[in-house]
Each structure stands twice: as structure tokens, then as C-alpha cells.
């Protein structure tokens, strides 16, 4: 038995019989050399697959098959509400990250200041920071648009019966997402630590406390005490920028993935 490597697929002879130019030969040898080490062919296959999927000619949809298009097209805006809320979510993520550079979730008062650090940072963003006024405005309005789009999306799904048979679990996921969106909005509403924010925190705290049995525990977990203060703001901040973004993004991915898998429920 020889210790020389054997060429199982007889590639040498194959290259010889191709009668290649020097450049072609060099390319092919390099490709084979790299493929032997990095399995390039697998990635080429992936690329090819992606290419054909991008240029896929979709099979005839229900709407086209039954020629509902003339009745369907003016409902189309209602069918884009889900993606509109995702677009608003992306805008919120970008503007929120930019706001996060300048905001500080501290409800304590610095020496020589009248208002809390959080409120002063909010004022700084709105009055001193270049483009800061617009930035906060975008973040706020995108939030309003997202909540509105999510509500209308739910109404569209309800009134077209799109939650029916194979899609029950996705409806449940959607309800969870709506509740989380509201929590997102609430926790963001508290962050500027102005009058309304403070008293909204107060009301939320009282609501949590008045739940029987788990009330006090829930108030301490979410608001960090029995009256709004520095711990409340910190917890709302962590909820708003750390916990909810991960959870909501993951759930949106699952929600859209299920829609992708099951297809859009078209009107009949």
C-alpha cells in the first residue's frame, strides 16, 4: 500500500482532457483546492438556490385563480398593515438607539439642579442636541403609528376571518404581541419623567397593587417599590430597552415565519 494520495475522482485526467487555457486551468485548480478545504460547492449550491428563489414565479394565488383581483385590490392597504407595523418597529429601533446615546434613566437630582437627571437629559435632547427635537418626535410618532397599525391589523384579521382553522396559534401570538406593544408604549411613556409620566407610573403602580394575592409582588417586580421613584424609572428603562426589544423581536420573527409557512389567508 502506497502512502501517496490517490485521486479518487481522477480529476487530473479530467483537467487534461478539458484542454484549458492557462487562466482557466489556474482558476479550476484553485477552485478545487479551496473546495477540498472549505466545501465551496455547498455554498455555491446555496447561492444558486437563493437565486432561483428570488426569481421564483409564484403559483397562481387564490385571488388570481378565482379572479377576485378586481374586488381585492382596494382592500390591499388593509393587507399591508402587518408589514407597516414592522416598518414602524424598525424606525423605532433606529431612533430609539440614537436617543439612547443621550438619555440617562436616573430619577435622582444632580447637585444644583431643580429637575431629575432623566428629565434634564430629555430637555437636552429636545433643545440642545442637533436634530434631537426631530429625533424624539420621530420616535414618538412612529410609536403612535405602530400601535395604530397593530390595532387595525387585528381588526382586519378579525373581520376577514383570517384567524380560522390553521391559524389559531398565530392569532394567539398576535394578541400576545399587541399586549407587549402596549407595554412597550407604557414603559416608554414613563421614561421622560415629566408630570404625566410620573402620574402614569403612579396609576400603573396602583393597578398592579390592587390585583389580589400577587399584587404587591408584581408592583415590586415591575415598579421597584410602592411609590414611583428612581427604581421605577430604572425598571421601566430596562423593560423598554433590554427585555421587550428581544422578546418582541423574537415573537415578531415567529409570527411572520408562521405567516410565511402557512401563507396569507386571502378573502374568499
Amino acid at each position: 500500500m502506497s502512502l501517496e494520495r490517490t485521486d479518487e475522482f481522477d480529476r487530473g485526467d479530467w483537467i487534461e482532457e478539458k484542454d484549458l487555457s492557462r487562466v482557466e486551468r489556474g482558476y479550476l485548480v484553485t477552485l478545487m483546492w479551496l473546495d477540498k478545504r472549505f466545501r465551496l460547492v455547498d455554498y455555491l449550491e446555496l447561492l444558486e438556490d437563493a437565486y432561483y428563489k428570488t426569481n421564483l414565479q409564484m403559483p397562481k394565488s387564490h385571488t388570481e385563480q378565482y379572479n377576485l383581483d378586481n374586488k381585492f385590490w382596494y382592500w390591499y392597504p388593509l393587507y399591508s398593515l402587518g408589514s407597516l407595523s414592522i416598518i414602524a418597529y424598525v424606525i423605532l429601533a433606529i431612533s430609539g438607539a440614537l436617543l439612547g446615546f443621550y438619555y440617562s434613566p436616573s430619577a435622582t437630582t444632580a447637585a444644583g439642579q431643580e429637575a431629575t437627571i432623566a428629565y434634564n437629559q430629555m430637555v437636552f435632547i429636545m433643545t440642545d442636541l442637533n436634530f434631537g427635537f426631530m429625533l424624539r418626535s420621530i420616535h414618538r410618532w412612529a410609536a403612535q403609528f405602530m400601535v395604530a397599525a397593530v390595532f387595525l391589523h387585528m381588526l382586519r384579521v378579525y373581520f376577514t376571518g383570517a384567524y380560522k382553522e390553521p391559524r389559531e396559534l398565530n392569532w394567539i401570538l398576535g394578541v400576545v404581541l399587541i399586549l407587549l406593544t402596549l407595554l412597550f408604549g407604557y414603559s416608554g411613556y414613563v421614561l421622560p419623567w415629566n408630570q404625566l409620566a410620573y402620574w402614569a407610573a403612579q396609576i400603573g403602580l396602583e393597578m398592579a397593587r390592587s390585583v389580589p394575592i400577587i399584587g404587591e409582588w408584581a408592583a415590586q417586580l415591575l415598579f421597584g417599590g410602592f411609590s414611583p421613584g428612581a427604581p421605577t424609572l430604572m425598571r421601566m428603562y430596562i423593560l423598554h430597552v433590554f427585555v421587550l426589544p428581544f422578546v418582541v423581536t423574537a415573537l415578531i420573527a415567529i409570527h411572520v415565519g408562521i405567516v410565511w409557512m402557512q401563507g396569507i389567508a386571502e378573502p374568499h
Binding site: M126, R136, I138, W141, F145, L196
Partner: peptide, 21 residues
């Protein structure tokens, strides 16, 4: 949609409310 959001936020910015008291 993005244009609508930008337009609305440019024309109707949030007010500067009083600090928490």
C-alpha cells in the same frame, strides 16, 4: 409610510412638558 411618519413628526412635534412633581 416612512415619509408619512417623518412628515407628521416634523409638523407635530411633542410638547416640552413640566418636570415630574
Amino acid at each position: 409610510f416612512v415619509g408619512v411618519i417623518l412628515f407628521v413628526s416634523a409638523t407635530m412635534p411633542p410638547p416640552l412638558e413640566a418636570a415630574a412633581n
